[in-house]
Design a protein around this nucleic acid. Structure first.
Lengths: 209, 209
DNA sequence: TCATTCAGTAAACATCTGTTTGCTGACTTT
DNA sequence: AAAGTCAGCAAACAGATGTTTACTGAATGA
């Protein structure tokens, strides 16, 4: 029988965190496939061999970062979808939430954007799977309203995917705004709102195209 | 005075092409920041030092690949925009053109998708600049029709950007289809068409939202 | 024809990489 | 208190990396 928290396990978890944090930091200006194992351990201040006590290799660390990065986004989406409000307010809330997420966890968002189509297969697949789950969830939340309007399940799913893709797009757009440049930030937010409005309009007139 | 084509220059151009081709091939399963200079020269069958006769470094080669990759896409977009046809047909033509482009130059498209948010700044910036030019061009082609309908230049530009982003999105979606799987390919095309239709609907009802 | 140019070469450079090995010593269990 | 576990270490490994150097020899220009 093993305790879930002893001094032992706590220390281990601490170094694991340090490795993840160091990795995330280094990944701000390079991509995962060029990240070195020694590079990470050097930042943490630990011997290279210690890395293997926590991860099989770097792509393993990458997959862990994916779950961490998209975990918080997941909670955020749930919250927005839960609020039963009008289109206009929902758009406002969504864009603001994305902006806030980017402000709070820029490195996580950058990591996702970079590795979504990056050179490391397992990481790419982990991101794709997670984003698919997002789209499913959004589709589920749309179904009660759209199905009675005559929407097919497939079309609802397509719409949901569009919202998810747009969210990722908006997040990366915020990311490219130079720091402390609220003007550009407002421009990005404005663009995002208008694009969401356009999608909403399209959705409203879908059945009478 | 130097001739623009001697046996000399022709050979040089030939090696340059070989380097670009080798790079592009290697970049199908890795990203630019992890690509090695020696790796490229090895494939070409040339000494490592020869690389420097053509490119300052790998990101220089990357920038050259950006221009090459987006050059053909540019011509393609022009062609679609030039045809003055209805929404429905335009959507059909656009999706088919993107599909064809991906079939013809998968490596180029993959490269763009991968490096758009990749770890090499100059390449990222080159892609962003080129996509911006795309959006400008699309906006210009929309202006004659939309301006009389009361659209502002800013809103036209936002719409154009949406189309460009969607095109890139569709291209990468085609890319993720396993080879020789026409079923999945049709599904992606269908999704793309419906999303474009949705945007069209939104556009038509923009001023009476 | 002869001097020049320059794409490509071979070799050496210092430096970095991932991974394996056997070991230590603090924590944990009995 | 004794036995066992196991996170982290130091060292060594073979091999790869980017870059510089002085060079060769074929295409070029006068």
């Amino acid at each position: 029988m093993s305790h879930t928290s002893g001094v032992r396990q706590a220390q281990k978890e601490k170094t694991r965190r340090a490795l993840l944090d160091a990795g995330l930091r280094l990944l701000e200006d390079q991509s995962l496939s060029s990240l070195g194992l020694r590079e990470v351990t050097r930042v943490v201040g630990v011997a290279p061999a210690a890395f293997y006590r926590h991860f099989r290799d770097l792509s393993d660390l990458g997959v862990a970062l994916v779950e961490e990065s998209l975990g918080s986004l997941h909670a955020l989406i749930r919250a927005i979808l839960a609020d039963q409000i009008g289109d206009q307010e929902r758009i406002e809330a969504t864009v603001e939430a994305v902006a806030e997420q980017v402000r709070r966890y820029p490195a996580h968002i950058r990591f996702i954007a970079r590795e979504r189509h990056g050179g490391v297969r397992p990481v790419r697949e982990a991101i794709a799977a997670e984003l698919d789950r997002f789209a499913d969830e959004v589709a589920d939340s749309f179904a009660p309203q759209l199905t009675p309007e005559g929407w097919s399940a497939e079309d609802i799913r397509i719409l949901a995917q569009m919202y998810v893709d747009h969210m990722v797009m908006t997040a990366t757009a915020f990311l490219e705004v130079p720091p402390d440049c609220p003007e550009e930030e407002h421009r990005v937010a404005d663009t995002a709102r208008k694009q969401l409005l356009l999608i909403s309009l399209g959705r409203r007139h879908w059945r009478d195209g």
